[in-house]
Amino acid sequence: MNILVVDDETDVRPLFEQRFRREIRNGEFRFTFAESGEQALEYLKDLLSEAVLILSDINMPGMSGLELLRQIKSEYQAPPPPVVMMITAYGDAQSYNQAMELGADDFLTKPLDFNELKNKLKTLQ
């Protein structure tokens, strides 16, 4: 399964790579990383057919995660529609409602519980 992680923190990359080292090693998951909403959209142009799941931070400089979500949901409707999970440090109702209205498939708060995330990903497979 292809997973695109969008976060402005670059250390998210080694973290995911280590947290999912077994899954990556045995080819279960394949991760791609983008540092901004704009970069994520660039990747999606090329990788759409491969990307199945998008994990995006909401709070980023420039294009916010919510804006990215809106664009993905409106532009990439081709089946199968990508699953988009939103992650935020602000677990407030307002962000949650907005994400849900825009069609987010899930809403996770930081700090991420990687075991929970792993389970969620495995059920999606």
């Binding site: 250390d11 973290l15 709070n59 440090a89 930081k110 700090p111």
Partner: peptide, 16 residues
């Protein structure tokens, strides 16, 4: 917010 992010990394990297 600014402290939460590095602390998450500290926690995550030590756990991993």
């Amino acid at each position: 917010h600014e402290i939460q992010n590095p602390l998450n990394f500290v926690n995550n990297f030590s756990e991993v």
